[in-house]
Design a protein around this nucleic acid. Structure first.
Length: 263
DNA sequence: CGTGGCCCCTGTGGGC
DNA sequence: TGCCCACAGGGGCCAC
């Protein structure tokens, strides 16, 4: 990163070990990027001098890379711009976030990122049945609430929680402790399959989501239950039910998702 | 331990 | 046409 331009300071956060006014070097100006990392919904840009920044997109955040020469990205709510100049090319990395639920966290050393990520559950894209069993052990919460809890499983949000539960045939309000071993294994498979398909389709663009190159995602056309309360189930035709679980809109099929609840 | 409520913030779509 | 309200891919905090 050669330099950075911050238009809104309040989207940049410091963490333990970092103090004082945020400087360019905190945002990796002058650093050589060594690798990128991800755990659940957390992203990290890691430099070879040990520094690193985390990015979380929240609800409306976008991270966009625009190669030099392409028309400069315009628009409101661009809070941070990195001017990248390295062996792989020149361009701008742009952080835009209208609602500002997302943000950027600066770390003086990458070890602190690992420590922070250690508090999250296992990554959902690769979650195993055994890991899910451990996450659910001794918990009576609703399945959907557990899926949304990043400390238990990292990376499942509202859309993919509903879609995974439908695929696994499980009721969103069933208790974690009500599932048997096979049902948990089935849910783990459903989570992995759902996320894999969603990634392959480029994500779910409900309104304005776009990937790093600005492309919208088309997984929305594969949504079976999310946003479809009141409509017919694609599998059995029954009317999908809409409820709120853990303060989030939740849709499920009363016919296909009886798993986990006592009738 | 778990839940519900409230908050952070902007944009949009529907109902009147 | 315009105004107001509800709601939206997330998550932290607090009272109970």
């Amino acid at each position: 990163m050669s330099r950075t331009r911050v238009s809104r300071r309040d989207v940049i956060h410091t963490v333990e070990g970092e103090s004082g006014r945020i400087q360019g070097k905190d945002l990796l100006a002058g650093s050589r990027i060594e690798r990128l990392a991800r755990h659940g919904k957390q992203l990290a840009i890691l430099a070879d001098n040990g520094r690193g920044v985390c990015v979380h997109l929240g609800m409306s955040g976008q991270l966009r890379y625009v190669p030099a020469g392409k028309s400069a990205e315009r628009g409101d709510h661009i809070h941070c711009r990195w001017y990248v100049d390295g062996p792989l090319g020149r361009g701008q990395l742009i952080f835009r976030d209208p609602r500002r639920f997302g943000g950027i966290w600066v770390f003086p050393d990458a070890g602190l990122i690992e420590r922070r990520w250690g508090k999250l559950g296992p990554d959902a894209l690769r979650i195993t049945a055994a890991q899910l069993r451990r996450a659910f052990a001794g918990r009576k919460r609703a399945l959907k609430a557990a899926l949304l809890d990043q400390q238990l499983i990292a990376g499942v949000g509202n859309i993919y929680a509903d879609e995974s539960l439908f695929l696994a045939g499980l009721h969103p309000e069933a208790s974690c402790s009500a599932l048997n071993k096979e049902e948990i294994a089935k849910l783990a498979r459903a989570i992995r399959a759902t996320l894999r398909s969603a990634v392959a389709a480029g994500g779910s663009t409900l309104r304005d989501y776009a990937d790093g190159s600005g492309q919208a995602g088309w997984f929305t056309v594969q949504h079976r239950v999310y946003g479809r309360a009141g409509q017919g189930c694609v599998r059995c035709g029954k009317r999908l039910v809409g409820v709120r679980v853990a303060q989030r809109a939740t849709a499920f099929c009363p016919g296909c998702q009886g798993g986990g609840v006592m009738e």
